[in-house]
């Protein structure tokens, strides 16, 4: 692991120093900044905070917001909450899979895109909704999905 990344991890651990129960918050920060949680990151936290690594692994593997694999450059979240589902969210997901040539959700081999489903982003009125790199796209259609993805490189 690059020294810069390790420094970043240390910096995040320092943010919560001396406070109990901050493991999830700490991991979320690492996820946000490094886009995944590597074995090295877990080992570092384990050593510095004196938490068994098995415990950290259990937390990381339990929560959806944390990823044990590096994510792609662009993160595409397709909402399949109820409101988006009844308005055709699955069709949007199928289109995204077709465009990215993927059979299931996950990261493309070139690590350009990570495709994932989310269960409700709370903007149901605009369903179906897709979020690409934090930017919301409402009232999606399969053809709009394709156009949108084409814009990302």
């Amino acid at each position: 692991m690059a020294a810069a990344e390790l420094d970043k991890i240390d910096e995040i651990i320092d943010r919560y120093a001396g406070k109990e129960g901050m493991l999830i918050q700490l991991l979320l920060d690492i996820q946000n900044e490094l886009k995944w949680i590597s074995q090295e990151a877990m080992e570092r936290i384990s050593k510095r905070n004196n938490i068994p690594i098995g415990h950290i692994y259990r937390v990381v593997s339990f929560y959806k917001a944390m990823s044990l694999n590096p994510k792609g450059k662009h993160i595409v979240s397709v909402c399949l909450g109820t409101a988006c589902h009844v308005r055709g969210g699955l069709g949007i997901m199928d289109k995204a899979k077709e465009f990215l040539d993927m059979k299931t959700e996950g990261t493309t081999p070139d690590r350009k895109f990570t495709l994932e489903r989310v269960n409700c982003l709370g903007c149901c009125a605009l369903g179906p909704v897709v979020v690409v790199d934090g930017e919301y796209h409402g009232k999606m259609t399969p053809s709009k999905m394709e156009e949108t993805l084409k814009r990302y490189d």
Binding site: G81, T82, A83, C120, G122, C124
Partner: peptide
């Protein structure tokens, strides 16, 4: 922790 899909009043 409004996890119900289709609900966003807490948000």
């Amino acid at each position: 922790d409004e996890g119900d899909p289709g609900a966003f009043m807490n948000r």
